[in-house]
Amino acid sequence: MNYFLSFVILAEIFSILAVSTNLLMGIIGIFSVAQAAIMGVGAYTTAILMMAGTPFPLAMLAAVAVCAAINVLSSLPALRLAGDYFIITSFGTQLVATAVFINWQDLTGGASGLSGIPVVEIAGAGFPTAREFIVLSSLCLILVAAGFWLLMRSPYGRLLHAIRENEVAVVAAGRRVLRAKVGVSAVSGACAGIAGALYATYISFIDPMSFDIHVSVLVVTMLVVGGARTLAGSIIGPFLLMAIAQLLAVVDIPSTIVGPARQLIYGVILIAFMLWRPQGIAGKRL
């Protein structure tokens, strides 16, 4: 039972991260492999603040603000120009973030990470185990999903869709395209911050490996499988891929090859979807 709850909680956290990636990839159309790094910034921010005695809601709020700002700063060059080269820039962001996580020892605990992150407490209610935490993570996913849905059906969502279709025509209509994109990027960063805050407090231990390039690529894979540009895609992908990982763990194979086998399977799935179903299970064509 706990095993299953844990799977749901992690899939929910990754769904929130997938929404973050979806906003950049599916909605603005810039391909990011740095969303795990942004989530990492959120996780470290939350952990450090909580270990210094800050209550969870405030720590999470700070993580959201910091991640929104960092996501905007790191995507700004791509938002100004056409976004084709952003995958390179975002790769750089990811590497820099990982290097900072490893080397800023005083703050991040270096390669050994931070452990003993306090249990979440909101207004006297504690969330010590999966049984309680799932309420929090589900609530966060619901709020993020509702936010995404409201965003997309608003005039702003239509504006974003129009920018994807024909940016020049949007400019000609007197709209500020850069401002609109910065808004999405901030929301995307905020989502990664929420995911990071949940991850740090649920696992209660974080290290640089939790937010490295593999995790960023994993999220992109989840989004490709689930389908970009839709809310359903951002949720189906993480649940499906993490279920596959769980099955692998159950199958009786030597533990040394579980990791590589999982990478291999993810890689094959990614290529297969790119070739035969680029819109994913429930997405729209990029």
Binding site: Y156, R158, H161, A162, E165, N166, G174, V187
Partner: peptide
């Protein structure tokens, strides 16, 4: 330079002078 994948209504809606509702 139409927004081919948007409805005729949304093509016009996006261009309305009024900025209301255009922020996240």
């Amino acid at each position: 330079k139409l927004f081919e994948d948007l409805s005729a209504l949304d093509n016009v809606l996006v261009c309305l002078k009024d900025e209301a509702g255009n922020d996240p």
